[in-house]
Design a protein around this nucleic acid. Structure first.
Lengths: 144, 144
DNA sequence: AATGAAATGTTATGACATTACGCTATCGCG
DNA sequence: CGCGATAGCGTAATGTCATAACATTTCATT
Protein backbone atom coordinates (compact mmCIF):
# COMPACT_ATOMS: atom_id res chain seq x y z
CA UNK A 1 0.00 0.00 0.00
CA UNK A 2 2.19 2.81 -1.24
CA UNK A 3 1.42 6.35 -0.22
CA UNK A 4 3.31 9.58 -0.64
CA UNK A 5 2.22 11.62 2.31
CA UNK A 6 -0.17 10.32 4.86
CA UNK A 7 0.42 12.94 7.45
CA UNK A 8 -2.95 13.75 8.83
CA UNK A 9 -2.57 13.18 12.53
CA UNK A 10 -5.53 15.00 13.83
CA UNK A 11 -7.90 16.99 11.77
CA UNK A 12 -8.93 20.46 12.62
CA UNK A 13 -12.28 21.33 14.15
CA UNK A 14 -13.78 21.60 10.67
CA UNK A 15 -16.02 18.94 9.28
CA UNK A 16 -17.96 18.03 12.36
CA UNK A 17 -21.15 16.22 11.58
CA UNK A 18 -24.38 17.17 13.22
CA UNK A 19 -24.16 14.56 15.96
CA UNK A 20 -20.53 15.24 16.63
CA UNK A 21 -21.24 18.93 16.89
CA UNK A 22 -24.10 18.39 19.31
CA UNK A 23 -22.01 16.15 21.53
CA UNK A 24 -19.04 18.50 21.53
CA UNK A 25 -21.22 21.48 22.42
CA UNK A 26 -22.74 19.51 25.25
CA UNK A 27 -19.30 18.71 26.64
CA UNK A 28 -18.24 22.30 26.24
CA UNK A 29 -21.16 23.57 28.23
CA UNK A 30 -20.79 21.05 31.01
CA UNK A 31 -18.87 21.92 34.14
CA UNK A 32 -18.00 18.36 34.98
CA UNK A 33 -17.31 15.14 33.11
CA UNK A 34 -20.35 13.58 31.49
CA UNK A 35 -21.03 9.95 30.86
CA UNK A 36 -22.26 8.95 27.44
CA UNK A 37 -25.71 8.48 28.91
CA UNK A 38 -25.60 11.92 30.52
CA UNK A 39 -24.90 13.34 27.11
CA UNK A 40 -27.66 11.29 25.57
CA UNK A 41 -30.14 12.58 28.12
CA UNK A 42 -29.22 16.14 27.28
CA UNK A 43 -29.68 15.57 23.58
CA UNK A 44 -33.04 13.81 23.55
CA UNK A 45 -34.70 16.99 22.41
CA UNK A 46 -32.28 17.21 19.53
CA UNK A 47 -33.35 13.87 18.24
CA UNK A 48 -30.76 11.54 19.69
CA UNK A 49 -32.27 8.32 20.93
CA UNK A 50 -29.62 5.66 21.33
CA UNK A 51 -26.30 5.39 23.18
CA UNK A 52 -24.52 4.38 20.02
CA UNK A 53 -25.15 7.73 18.43
CA UNK A 54 -23.29 9.34 21.28
CA UNK A 55 -20.48 6.80 21.39
CA UNK A 56 -19.88 7.15 17.67
CA UNK A 57 -19.63 10.90 17.96
CA UNK A 58 -17.35 10.63 20.97
CA UNK A 59 -15.01 8.28 19.14
CA UNK A 60 -14.54 10.77 16.37
CA UNK A 61 -14.10 13.70 18.71
CA UNK A 62 -11.48 11.79 20.65
CA UNK A 63 -9.72 10.80 17.44
CA UNK A 64 -9.50 14.45 16.57
CA UNK A 65 -8.28 15.45 19.98
CA UNK A 66 -11.37 17.51 20.73
CA UNK A 67 -12.47 15.40 23.67
CA UNK A 68 -10.96 13.05 26.20
CA UNK A 69 -12.12 9.96 27.95
CA UNK A 70 -11.46 9.71 31.67
CA UNK A 71 -10.84 6.05 32.31
CA UNK A 72 -11.21 6.14 36.04
CA UNK A 73 -14.61 7.74 35.72
CA UNK A 74 -16.03 6.22 32.56
CA UNK A 75 -16.87 9.73 31.49
CA UNK A 76 -15.84 12.34 28.98
CA UNK A 77 -14.66 15.94 28.90
CA UNK A 78 -13.88 18.31 26.10
CA UNK A 79 -10.26 19.08 25.50
CA UNK A 80 -9.21 22.06 27.56
CA UNK A 81 -6.78 23.68 25.17
CA UNK A 82 -6.59 22.68 21.55
CA UNK A 83 -3.01 21.99 22.44
CA UNK A 84 -0.53 20.86 19.92
CA UNK A 85 -1.88 17.69 18.60
CA UNK A 86 -0.07 16.30 15.66
CA UNK A 87 3.48 15.82 16.78
CA UNK A 88 5.46 13.88 19.33
CA UNK A 89 2.47 13.37 21.55
CA UNK A 90 3.09 14.27 25.12
CA UNK A 91 1.10 12.32 27.63
CA UNK A 92 -1.86 14.24 28.93
CA UNK A 93 -2.69 14.15 32.61
CA UNK A 94 -5.91 14.96 34.38
CA UNK A 95 -6.55 16.13 37.91
CA UNK A 96 -10.08 15.19 38.83
CA UNK A 97 -11.85 16.60 41.86
CA UNK A 98 -14.05 14.03 43.52
CA UNK A 99 -16.12 16.72 45.22
CA UNK A 100 -17.10 19.12 42.46
CA UNK A 101 -16.09 17.20 39.36
CA UNK A 102 -13.70 19.83 38.15
CA UNK A 103 -11.06 18.50 35.79
CA UNK A 104 -7.73 20.17 35.08
CA UNK A 105 -5.74 19.02 32.15
CA UNK A 106 -1.98 19.15 32.19
CA UNK A 107 1.02 17.93 30.32
CA UNK A 108 4.42 17.39 31.86
CA UNK A 109 7.43 16.76 29.71
CA UNK A 110 9.45 15.20 32.47
CA UNK A 111 6.71 12.71 33.23
CA UNK A 112 6.29 11.95 29.55
CA UNK A 113 10.02 11.43 29.11
CA UNK A 114 10.27 9.24 32.17
CA UNK A 115 7.46 7.01 31.03
CA UNK A 116 8.93 6.76 27.57
CA UNK A 117 12.28 5.92 29.12
CA UNK A 118 10.75 3.12 31.13
CA UNK A 119 9.02 1.79 28.05
CA UNK A 120 12.18 2.03 26.01
CA UNK A 121 14.30 0.10 28.47
CA UNK A 122 11.64 -2.57 28.78
CA UNK A 123 10.94 -3.02 25.10
CA UNK A 124 7.42 -1.77 25.54
CA UNK A 125 5.78 0.18 22.74
CA UNK A 126 3.26 2.59 24.22
CA UNK A 127 0.22 3.50 22.20
CA UNK A 128 -1.82 5.34 24.73
CA UNK A 129 -1.03 6.75 28.14
CA UNK A 130 -3.47 7.27 30.96
CA UNK A 131 -2.57 9.63 33.78
CA UNK A 132 -5.32 10.57 36.18
CA UNK A 133 -5.06 12.11 39.62
CA UNK A 134 -8.11 11.61 41.74
CA UNK A 135 -8.42 13.93 44.68
CA UNK A 136 -9.75 17.27 45.82
CA UNK A 137 -9.26 20.57 44.05
CA UNK A 138 -8.11 23.75 45.71
CA UNK A 139 -11.55 25.28 45.99
CA UNK A 140 -13.15 22.24 47.54
CA UNK A 141 -10.16 21.69 49.81
CA UNK A 142 -10.52 25.16 51.25
CA UNK A 143 -14.27 24.88 51.55
CA UNK A 144 -14.08 21.85 53.79
CA UNK B 1 -13.58 -25.44 61.28
CA UNK B 2 -10.35 -23.70 62.17
CA UNK B 3 -7.24 -25.78 62.54
CA UNK B 4 -4.37 -24.46 64.54
CA UNK B 5 -1.92 -25.24 61.76
CA UNK B 6 -3.09 -23.03 58.91
CA UNK B 7 -1.60 -23.04 55.53
CA UNK B 8 0.88 -20.23 55.43
CA UNK B 9 0.03 -17.20 53.37
CA UNK B 10 3.15 -16.43 51.48
CA UNK B 11 4.62 -12.99 51.93
CA UNK B 12 2.48 -10.98 54.27
CA UNK B 13 0.54 -12.97 56.76
CA UNK B 14 -2.83 -11.34 56.53
CA UNK B 15 -6.13 -12.57 57.70
CA UNK B 16 -7.80 -13.25 54.44
CA UNK B 17 -11.29 -14.59 54.55
CA UNK B 18 -12.33 -17.52 52.46
CA UNK B 19 -13.70 -15.43 49.60
CA UNK B 20 -10.79 -13.04 49.64
CA UNK B 21 -8.40 -15.95 49.56
CA UNK B 22 -10.19 -17.56 46.65
CA UNK B 23 -10.18 -14.36 44.65
CA UNK B 24 -6.53 -13.64 45.37
CA UNK B 25 -5.48 -17.14 44.37
CA UNK B 26 -7.43 -16.79 41.15
CA UNK B 27 -5.64 -13.56 40.34
CA UNK B 28 -2.32 -15.10 41.22
CA UNK B 29 -2.82 -17.98 38.86
CA UNK B 30 -4.02 -15.84 35.99
CA UNK B 31 -1.60 -14.68 33.33
CA UNK B 32 -3.62 -11.65 32.37
CA UNK B 33 -5.98 -9.20 34.06
CA UNK B 34 -9.34 -10.64 35.01
CA UNK B 35 -12.66 -8.88 35.20
CA UNK B 36 -14.78 -9.46 38.26
CA UNK B 37 -17.03 -11.66 36.16
CA UNK B 38 -14.06 -13.65 34.89
CA UNK B 39 -13.14 -14.30 38.49
CA UNK B 40 -16.69 -15.21 39.33
CA UNK B 41 -16.81 -17.73 36.50
CA UNK B 42 -13.68 -19.39 37.78
CA UNK B 43 -15.05 -19.65 41.28
CA UNK B 44 -18.50 -21.07 40.56
CA UNK B 45 -17.32 -24.47 41.65
CA UNK B 46 -16.14 -23.03 44.91
CA UNK B 47 -19.59 -21.79 45.71
CA UNK B 48 -19.50 -18.20 44.56
CA UNK B 49 -22.63 -17.18 42.78
CA UNK B 50 -22.94 -13.40 42.66
CA UNK B 51 -20.75 -10.54 41.40
CA UNK B 52 -20.96 -8.78 44.72
CA UNK B 53 -19.12 -11.55 46.45
CA UNK B 54 -16.21 -10.96 44.12
CA UNK B 55 -16.34 -7.18 44.29
CA UNK B 56 -16.36 -7.24 48.06
CA UNK B 57 -13.32 -9.46 48.16
CA UNK B 58 -11.56 -7.31 45.58
CA UNK B 59 -12.19 -4.18 47.59
CA UNK B 60 -10.51 -5.65 50.59
CA UNK B 61 -7.59 -7.02 48.61
CA UNK B 62 -7.04 -3.64 47.00
CA UNK B 63 -7.27 -1.94 50.39
CA UNK B 64 -4.50 -4.18 51.60
CA UNK B 65 -2.38 -3.63 48.52
CA UNK B 66 -2.61 -7.24 47.43
CA UNK B 67 -4.40 -6.48 44.18
CA UNK B 68 -4.79 -3.62 41.78
CA UNK B 69 -7.57 -2.35 39.62
CA UNK B 70 -6.70 -1.40 36.06
CA UNK B 71 -8.98 1.50 35.25
CA UNK B 72 -8.50 1.46 31.53
CA UNK B 73 -9.45 -2.19 31.40
CA UNK B 74 -12.04 -2.51 34.13
CA UNK B 75 -10.10 -5.52 35.29
CA UNK B 76 -7.92 -6.64 38.14
CA UNK B 77 -4.46 -8.07 38.72
CA UNK B 78 -2.65 -9.24 41.78
CA UNK B 79 0.09 -7.04 43.08
CA UNK B 80 3.41 -7.96 41.52
CA UNK B 81 5.66 -7.24 44.47
CA UNK B 82 4.33 -6.94 47.95
CA UNK B 83 5.92 -3.54 47.99
CA UNK B 84 6.03 -1.62 51.17
CA UNK B 85 2.67 -0.26 52.07
CA UNK B 86 2.35 1.98 55.02
CA UNK B 87 4.48 4.97 54.13
CA UNK B 88 4.50 7.77 51.60
CA UNK B 89 3.04 5.80 48.76
CA UNK B 90 4.69 6.20 45.42
CA UNK B 91 2.40 6.15 42.44
CA UNK B 92 2.26 2.77 40.79
CA UNK B 93 2.30 2.52 37.03
CA UNK B 94 1.23 -0.32 34.79
CA UNK B 95 2.34 -1.26 31.31
CA UNK B 96 -0.42 -3.28 29.73
CA UNK B 97 0.09 -5.28 26.55
CA UNK B 98 -2.96 -5.16 24.32
CA UNK B 99 -1.91 -8.33 22.52
CA UNK B 100 -1.16 -10.84 25.25
CA UNK B 101 -2.54 -9.10 28.32
CA UNK B 102 0.75 -9.05 30.12
CA UNK B 103 0.97 -6.39 32.80
CA UNK B 104 4.19 -4.99 34.20
CA UNK B 105 4.05 -2.97 37.34
CA UNK B 106 6.50 -0.18 37.95
CA UNK B 107 7.11 2.73 40.22
CA UNK B 108 9.06 5.79 39.25
CA UNK B 109 10.10 8.31 41.84
CA UNK B 110 10.64 11.08 39.35
CA UNK B 111 7.16 10.65 37.93
CA UNK B 112 5.68 10.51 41.40
CA UNK B 113 7.53 13.65 42.45
CA UNK B 114 6.56 15.51 39.32
CA UNK B 115 2.89 14.70 39.73
CA UNK B 116 3.02 15.70 43.37
CA UNK B 117 4.72 18.91 42.38
CA UNK B 118 2.00 19.72 39.90
CA UNK B 119 -0.64 19.00 42.51
CA UNK B 120 1.16 21.08 45.07
CA UNK B 121 1.45 24.14 42.86
CA UNK B 122 -2.19 23.85 41.88
CA UNK B 123 -3.63 23.32 45.33
CA UNK B 124 -4.78 19.86 44.38
CA UNK B 125 -4.81 17.14 47.02
CA UNK B 126 -4.28 13.79 45.35
CA UNK B 127 -5.82 10.73 46.87
CA UNK B 128 -5.25 8.20 44.18
CA UNK B 129 -3.07 8.17 41.09
CA UNK B 130 -3.71 6.21 37.94
CA UNK B 131 -0.85 5.62 35.52
CA UNK B 132 -1.42 3.10 32.77
CA UNK B 133 0.50 2.61 29.57
CA UNK B 134 -1.42 0.75 26.91
CA UNK B 135 0.67 -0.73 24.15
CA UNK B 136 2.60 -3.80 23.06
CA UNK B 137 5.10 -5.68 25.16
CA UNK B 138 8.53 -6.69 23.98
CA UNK B 139 7.61 -10.29 23.24
CA UNK B 140 4.56 -9.42 21.18
CA UNK B 141 6.40 -6.60 19.44
CA UNK B 142 9.08 -8.99 18.25
CA UNK B 143 6.59 -11.65 17.29
CA UNK B 144 4.78 -9.38 14.87
C1' DA C 1 -24.83 -17.11 76.32
C1' DA C 2 -25.33 -12.19 74.53
C1' DT C 3 -23.81 -8.86 71.61
C1' DG C 4 -22.00 -6.27 67.77
C1' DA C 5 -18.93 -5.84 63.87
C1' DA C 6 -17.62 -7.86 59.75
C1' DA C 7 -18.40 -11.05 56.26
C1' DT C 8 -21.59 -13.52 53.53
C1' DG C 9 -25.57 -14.97 50.32
C1' DT C 10 -29.20 -13.59 47.15
C1' DT C 11 -32.13 -10.87 44.21
C1' DA C 12 -32.76 -7.15 41.62
C1' DT C 13 -31.35 -3.20 39.32
C1' DG C 14 -28.44 0.44 37.60
C1' DA C 15 -24.68 2.10 34.65
C1' DC C 16 -21.64 1.68 30.78
C1' DA C 17 -20.66 -0.11 26.04
C1' DT C 18 -21.02 -2.86 21.76
C1' DT C 19 -22.91 -6.01 18.06
C1' DA C 20 -25.75 -6.52 14.26
C1' DC C 21 -28.46 -4.95 10.62
C1' DG C 22 -30.13 -1.86 7.20
C1' DC C 23 -30.43 2.56 5.05
C1' DT C 24 -28.60 6.96 2.84
C1' DA C 25 -25.27 10.19 0.93
C1' DT C 26 -20.99 11.21 -1.07
C1' DC C 27 -16.88 10.61 -3.78
C1' DG C 28 -13.59 8.64 -7.28
C1' DC C 29 -13.25 6.47 -11.33
C1' DG C 30 -13.70 3.19 -15.50
C1' DC D 1 -23.56 7.24 -16.21
C1' DG D 2 -23.07 3.15 -13.10
C1' DC D 3 -20.38 0.89 -9.94
C1' DG D 4 -17.92 0.15 -5.67
C1' DA D 5 -15.97 2.11 -1.64
C1' DT D 6 -16.36 4.85 2.38
C1' DA D 7 -18.61 7.20 5.97
C1' DG D 8 -22.33 8.48 8.68
C1' DC D 9 -26.88 7.60 10.60
C1' DG D 10 -31.06 5.12 13.16
C1' DT D 11 -32.79 1.35 15.82
C1' DA D 12 -33.10 -2.80 18.52
C1' DA D 13 -31.08 -6.03 21.11
C1' DT D 14 -27.60 -7.57 23.80
C1' DG D 15 -23.40 -7.72 26.43
C1' DT D 16 -20.44 -6.17 30.21
C1' DC D 17 -19.38 -3.91 34.54
C1' DA D 18 -20.93 -2.49 39.23
C1' DT D 19 -23.92 -1.53 43.22
C1' DA D 20 -28.33 -1.18 46.20
C1' DA D 21 -31.01 -3.39 49.43
C1' DC D 22 -32.00 -6.79 52.58
C1' DA D 23 -31.59 -11.06 55.16
C1' DT D 24 -28.45 -14.15 57.39
C1' DT D 25 -24.16 -16.13 59.32
C1' DT D 26 -19.66 -16.06 61.62
C1' DC D 27 -16.81 -15.07 65.28
C1' DA D 28 -14.15 -12.54 68.76
C1' DT D 29 -15.23 -10.32 72.86
C1' DT D 30 -17.98 -9.32 76.79
Amino acid sequence: MPHSHDDHQHERPRDLTRNQDLVLKTLNHADAPLSAYDILDRLRDDGLRAPLQVYRALDKLIDQGLAHRLESLNAFVCCAHAHAHGHGHAATGFAICGKCGRVDEFSDEVVTDRLEAWASTHGFTPERTVIELRGVCETCGKAS
